[in-house]
Design a protein around this nucleic acid. Structure first.
Length: 478
DNA sequence: CACGACCTTAATCTT
DNA sequence: AAGATTCCAGGTCGTG
């Protein structure tokens, strides 16, 4: 038998590949990605985003009027499904920027130029402005470096009542469900990056949108072909953006080289991506459904260590900003853990603390000072750990039952250790304070459920809320 | 135990 | 305006 000549590892790998292929084809993922990246669709999206932004919707009804919004969102309508090109989609004859990247490039083990991945067409702004803006930001990077990676400055003085959602800060930045949204850690700029389930990555340069007329400040790319599961941008290197994908690829967008380079690929699913603060060459990500965490050295292109830390997929990885030896993981196995990377126990780190939930845990994040941890679970609770060695656990009831179409909720910390932001199924943002008070940010302009959030690391009061319909609501402090 | 059928949920698409 | 479709979650329950 041929299989007998294979090593155990090789046989397992082949099995994995076969299983993945079966899953992918059964879900018609390729076709979806291609349909999505057709230039007609693309044009529609950019138009739509503009329309949506300039007139989010007239609100004839004063209070909650979700149906109104939905009607307006599809006013342009999608052209009837054309026969989609199939997997043998031939490479484009002309290298026009509006040509979607063919599957052969997205699956190739190699670099992908920004030009190849850019989804803008002739009528949209060139991404040259974006590239130059990010390079400018990067040149000012030293200004952004703070001790311990913690925001210093006016923390703690946020008045929630002063947070507002301006109509011009609402945008449909991409199609489909947004799984991830982040701010560039840049002191004087509001640059947002988001990723969706189709493998798109979008940049929203918010100031650019306000300053320039024709340019809407939104730049859409397709560097991946499956859901984007994570980003990592280090404050000291703003021109480099790591992104991970369910299909097992991790790419590094380098604005200097203007390409999305491949840094890692695996047969498993990558569910989350993180970097230890102040470690430019290390990547940390979760892989597969067996709770594996992998530490990857990008300089050598090798794994420095990998451990099975949970019984099921790991949904988030976060490092303590004060003590970067502490790492928090959240898992579908129903637990979240804090690990001490300095101490190992039976070939894996020792856990300092375990938080048990009754169902899957979708996030575990350290507070800005590192002295608290917040967990979010499908068991309809937000856990808050505090005190010496995270001894005190407090569970706050919160409806986290998002169902299938809305990304799971993940409570994130604000600009100090006193409160958390988390989605609310009634199209609002809940603010949970550590003393268990819950207040709500509401706006009649928020026409969909905000499920994934990010806070601007330097601008207190600037909060991005992303939806499963591709919108971002950018709350700011008035 | 493994597996599949079925349910939940909201936004979008189609009729 | 209303029904159909989405679909890389995750739980439950029934069957082989």
């Amino acid at each position: 038998m041929a299989s007998q000549s294979l090593t155990e590892y090789e046989r397992k790998r082949l099995e994995n590949i076969k299983r993945n292929d079966e899953m992918m084809s059964s879900l018609k993922l390729h076709s979806k990605a291609l349909q999505l990246s057709s230039s007609t669709n693309n044009k529609r999206l950019r138009n739509e985003s503009k329309v949506y932004k300039t007139s989010p919707d007239k609100k004839p009804k004063s209070k909650t009027a979700p149906i109104v919004i939905r009607r307006s969102l599809r006013s342009q309508g999608l052209p009837p499904e054309t026969s989609f090109q199939d997997d043998n989609f031939s490479s484009p004859t002309k290298n026009s920027p509006k040509t979607p990247p063919p599957k052969s490039i997205l699956t190739k083990l190699g670099p992908l130029t920004m030009k190849q991945a850019y989804m803008g067409d002739d009528s949209s702004a060139s991404d040259r402005v974006l590239i130059d803006t990010v390079k400018d930001m990067s040149d000012n990077a030293p200004l952004n470096v703070k001790s311990g990676g913690v925001v210093v400055g006016n923390e703690g003085c946020l008045d929630l009542g002063s947070m507002i959602l301006k109509p011009e800060n609402i945008a449909r930045v991409m199609p489909g469900k947004i799984l991830n949204v982040e701010f560039f850690p840049c002191k004087d700029r509001t640059m947002i990056v988001a990723g969706n389930k189709f493998g798109n990555v979008v940049f929203w340069d918010v100031e650019s949108e306000q300053d320039e007329g024709r340019n809407d400040g939104i730049y859409l790319y397709q560097p991946h072909r499956a859901p984007v599961s994570g980003f990592s941008i280090q404050p000291f290197s703003l021109s480099k953006v790591f992104s991970s994908c369910y299909d097992g690829f991790i790419r590094l967008l380098d604005f200097e080289k203007e390409s999305f380079d491949l840094v890692y690929s695996t047969d498993g699913t990558i569910f989350s991506l993180s970097q230890r603060p102040q470690d430019p060459n290390g990547l940390c990500f979760s892989e597969g459904n067996n709770g594996m965490v992998n530490f990857w050295d990008t300089r050598v292109g090798k794994s420095s260590s990998s451990w099975m830390l949970h019984d099921s997929r790991i949904n988030t990885i976060d490092f303590n900003p004060e003590n970067t030896n502490l790492m928090a993981t959240s898992s579908t196995d129903g637990s979240a853990c804090i690990w001490d990377l300095r101490h190992t126990d039976a070939h894996r780190p020792k856990y300092l603390k375990i938080v048990d939930h009754k169902r899957a845990v979708h996030s575990a994040y350290f507070s800005p000072t590192g002295s608290c941890l917040a967990t979010t679970s499908l068991d309809d609770h937000v856990g808050i750990l505090s005190g010496a060695d995270f001894m005190n656990t407090s569970m706050v009831f919160h409806n986290n039952h998002t169902g299938r179409w809305i990304s799971s909720f993940r409570a994130i910390w604000g600009w100090d250790d006193s409160y958390l932001f988390v989605g609310n199924m009634k199209r609002a943002v809940d603010v949970i304070s550590t003393d268990r008070d819950i207040t709500t940010l509401q706006s009649s302009d928020m026409s969909a459920i905000p499920c994934r959030f990010a806070v601007h690391p330097y601008k207190v009061g600037t909060l991005a809320a992303a939806t499963s319909g591709g919108q971002i609501y950018l709350w700011t402090q008035s």
